[in-house]
Computed example of a mutant assay.
Amino acid sequence: MEKKLSPIKLDSYQPLREVVCESLRDAIRRGVLKPGERLMEIQLAEELGVSRTPVREAIRKLELEGYVIMMPRRGTYVASMSIRDINEIFEIRTALESLSNGLAAERITDEELESLQRLLVMIGGYVEEGNMDKIVETDIEFHDLLYRAARNSRLVGIISNLREQLTRFRTLSMSYPGRLETTLEEHREIVEAIAEGDVKRAKKAAEHHMEMSEKTLLKAVDANKKNEKTKRARKAAK
């Protein structure tokens, strides 16, 4: 395996296994470690400048999050995400997002509602600027706040785990033509419903948002595959 990772900084307040896990997770999200690629503990430990123990612990956590697959007698690999996997995740997440929004409509505080509205304005500004990094960062903050407003820690944990499994596709999906603008409108619909305390409308808004997110992601994945195929064909023709 060619060297792909940089040594981690050991001055973090986090436990080493968490720092290693974050580094590997980020590498998978950015495509540095690609789907189907085998992960060798010794190689990863050398590249990151740590012992094998925190690498092993990090890999176990990443398996629970769906980022890697550990196969007996065959090794550990970066998990691939099939269309069926995406469909299954969205089926579950849609139901849970609907529940979360409904609870938020009943339980959100005035301060949290103001924060949601402020985040909407920020996202709109970043969309106009075309600042994808800030859009992604603020979108995560927006949804995290929605989940907290539901006042159900177990629900938050389950949704967060499902969301993590699709994080590697977030930028790809949001970069799809027209998606940023429609996402902003979907978010506004969610906030308006919650502000009015309309549980039924809040649930429907969440379901619509998930439906559109899934459709866009599948289109983006398909377009990306075609682009990669075209690039390989052109490279082979040279």
Rank of each mutant, 00 (worst) to 15 (best):
C21S: 14
V20L: 12
L155Q: 03
E37N: 00
K4Q: 03
G124A: 04
S173E: 15
R84F: 05
L180K: 08
K204P: 00
T138Q: 07
L120R: 15
N224R: 11
R17D: 15
L184A: 03
I135C: 06
E65M: 15
E207I: 11
L166N: 04
A236K: 12
A45E: 06
V121E: 13
E192G: 06
S100K: 02
S173P: 00
M40R: 02
K215W: 13
D26A: 14
R151C: 09
E46K: 13
L5M: 07
L48G: 11
K200V: 14
A27S: 11
I92P: 01
N227W: 07
P54V: 11
L16D: 06
R148D: 02
L5A: 08
H208A: 14
R234F: 06
P177W: 01
E65F: 15
V127T: 10
K219A: 14
I159D: 01
K215Y: 14
L217F: 07
A223P: 03
M174V: 05
L146P: 06
E137G: 01
T94D: 09
A236Q: 07
L39C: 01
V55M: 10
N131G: 08
K229C: 00
D110A: 13
Q43H: 05
I190W: 01
M132E: 04
Q165R: 15
K3T: 06
